[in-house]
Simulated assay, not measured.
Amino acid sequence: MAGVLEGVDQRTKLAGHNRFELLLFKLASRQRFGINVFKVQEVIQCPPLTQIPNSHSVICGVAHLRGKTIPVLDLSMAIGMRPLSREEGAYVIVTEYNRSIQGFMVGSVDRIINIGWEQVKAPPTGAGRESYLTAVTNVEGELIEVIDVEKVMKEVIGGREEAAAETIDASVSGKNDHILVVDDSSVARNQVKRVCEQIAIECTTLKDGLEAWEHLTQLLAEGVNIQDRYAMIISDVEMPRMDGYTLATKIKSDPAMRDIYLILHTSLSGVFNTAMVQKVGANEFLAKFDPDSLLAAIQKQLRTHHSV
Rank of each mutant, 00 (worst) to 15 (best):
Y245T: 01
S269Q: 10
H305N: 06
D184G: 11
A256I: 00
S235H: 02
K252G: 08
L264M: 10
S171K: 05
E118K: 13
Q10N: 06
I115A: 06
V37N: 09
C46N: 10
V192W: 02
A248S: 03
R129F: 13
K288A: 12
V181H: 05
R32Q: 15
Q301R: 13
A90S: 07
T137A: 02
G107M: 11
K175F: 03
K250R: 14
L302W: 00
V224D: 00
C196N: 12
K207R: 09
I70C: 13
K154D: 12
R129G: 13
V37C: 08
Q198F: 03
N54C: 04
K121S: 00
F272L: 08
L5I: 12
R32Y: 13
I251G: 01
G270K: 02
E166M: 03
A188Q: 03
E6A: 14
E166Q: 14
D290H: 09
P48W: 05
K39D: 08
L286E: 03
G141A: 07
A122P: 15
G103H: 12
P47W: 00
T249Y: 02
E162F: 02
K207F: 00
A231W: 01
T95C: 06
V280W: 00
F272R: 12
G128T: 04
G3P: 11
S235A: 11
P83L: 04
H305F: 03
R11V: 10
A221L: 06
A248E: 04
M276V: 14
S235R: 00
L23S: 10
G159T: 07
E96S: 04
G128Y: 05
T12H: 03
R86A: 15
A122C: 12
G7D: 08
P48V: 09
N190G: 14
R194M: 12
N114H: 02
A296W: 03
I260D: 05
S57W: 01
G128L: 00
D228W: 07
P53A: 01
G126Y: 00
I113C: 14
I179S: 04
G244P: 01
L294M: 01
G158W: 05
V62G: 08
I298K: 00
E150P: 09
K193V: 02
A200I: 05
G107W: 02
A90G: 14
N18L: 07
I115C: 02
R303M: 00
N176P: 15
L295P: 02
D259H: 01
A296L: 02
F285I: 13
S100V: 13
I179A: 09
N36D: 11
W117I: 14
P47F: 07
G3E: 05
G141H: 01
V146Y: 00
S235N: 09
L5N: 06
P83I: 05
